[in-house]
Design a protein around this nucleic acid. Sequence first.
RNA 1: GCCGACGUGGCUCAGUGGUAGAGCAGCUCACUCGUAAUGAGCAGGUCCGCGGUUCGAAUCCGCGCGUCGGCUCCA
Length: 587
Amino acid sequence: MMKTSSQDSYHSLRHSAAHLMAQAVGDLYPGVQYAIGPPIEDGFYYDFDLPSPLKEDDLPRIEARMRELAALGAPIVRREMTREAALEECSRAGQSYKVELIRDLPEGEPITFYDQGGWSDLCRGPHVATTADTGHFRLLSVAGAYWRGSEANKMLTRIYGTAWNSEQELEDYLKRLEEAKARDHRKIGKDLGLFVFAAEQIGQGVPLFLPRGEMLRHIMESYVRDTQTRYGYQHVWTAHVVREDLYRRSGHYDNYADVMYPPMVDEDAGVTYRLKPMNCPSHMTLYNESGLKSYRDLPLRMAEFATLYRYEKSGELTGLTRVRSLTQDDCHIFCTEDQVEEEFGLALQLIHEVLGRYGFTDYSVRLSLRGDEPDGKYVADDERWTRATAALRRALDANGVTYHEATGEAAFYGPKADFQTRDVLGREWTASTIQVDFIQPSRLGCRYIAADGSEQTPVVLHRAVTGSTERFLGLLIEQYAGAFPLWLAPVQVMLLPIADAQVEYASAVGARLRQDGLRVEIDSRSERVGLKIREAEMQKIPYMVIMGRRDIEAGVVSVRRRGEGDLGAMSVEALIARLQSDIESGA
RNA sequence: GCCGACGUGGCUCAGUGGUAGAGCAGCUCACUCGUAAUGAGCAGGUCCGCGGUUCGAAUCCGCGCGUCGGCUCCA
């Protein structure tokens, strides 16, 4: 969830709605401890430490109490206090989370409370004038949330709600949520027969792709592959199992072990293997084992469409956007330190080209930096981290990229520039990424001979264009609501003979279209054409080609475009020209 | 993994203690049809699994598995 900015016109409204909810919860659950309750995009939440568990069934009761409190119209009054008095007040009330918050407020910052009808809360504000001004709200869900977002802390009870200026706005929002569900790639994937999950037979988070889903993967991967080849990339292939010792040397074992599938032990040979969670060590091994490199070999761009296996925690899995088997369009660019900027620029250009082709414009760039998390999350090597971070910043600035920074989001081996986009439910995901790594190449002994004859360690840029085929496909399905442009559509044309007598003619037309590489199917069932059209429309097939007795006599076909309707009759050659023009333009 | 919700035929869902239902899909038959559902008939379910309460459980309780919404984590 994204926080709203304070300029947001709904900020006070939603913040006050959160307070109103907290007051209601306090009335209904004596002994509750309050944590935090901010406004968020489209709504608000509040975290509570409750003496007894709360269920979703309790929400109507809380909402009813909120309405009673709102009806009282108590004024919401700001009250400034000294640190000591504030601590005293919260301690006396047994509000230990508030005490902790006050202790952490910077010296000199005013400490304010907001009072409403005998209830009060530590808060920076601002708020609406009275509890009657909290708008039109609805409580939505109960969730667990760790105090201060840390797994090490106690899990609190979070209640999410939404609040708007009018009943109409509220209804529109709830309707938007419903519509988003209809675009959900998990639903569309099922309806269009793209992929299935068989958690109990295959495993959680491991999708299986049906012919139409596989065709989409194939088209996506071919497209990126061809583009990469044009950009001077070379493609390699490395296997799915790797000796565990390689991951000890690369740093994965110490910094990434909890995301790796458990080890596979070959007792006889005394060797332990792991499923590959990342390609970097394999690619660096390939770099090392394919002959001593000269500075003249750099930059060396080693790309692979590789399926990786990551044992993500069960609760983190969602559809195709977060899976345990993912196919990265990965590349490792081995280069010298002063090639970083230019290589970064080239990767950026490639990413822009590809995202543009997919009509993907709604993304932001996040500079993901190391945080001050305790040991285990990042390889400890301050000097190399500093150099990598400086190099990445320079590259971003030199290429004129607008970005925002986020600490604690780096990879364990280096900082990243992540291209963030959102799914239909507003969740943020990383698609493209460019990462700067000064650490792994050194740990795995990668080297090249420089112009002066000295031995040097290359820098490695890790980058992915679409990120992973699975996640990107999930995002694409939602972006297009399953109605893919012609070049991507797994079935481009559905041929619809009106009666059995036209099946043969349809087969001939199909053969002609396939000659030009078009993906065609024939619906030769003895059904009415209305039914066939309906089903092809629901399957989001871009073109339907209808053939009846009159078409055969005239030597033409009748063409219908998905979502547009009848385009009239034309020759097969004219149809092909039209299809090719659509494919060309990306329509 | 944690908090909450949910789990009924291929799909969408109804059924809250008394012998399992609907629509769609499937199968059979008839119709050979001109731009978003032709009609009739038939068949199909260990009600997620295991245990418990009860004369009796899809329904109540416990445990497990899975899905969904969050948290944490992430391509």
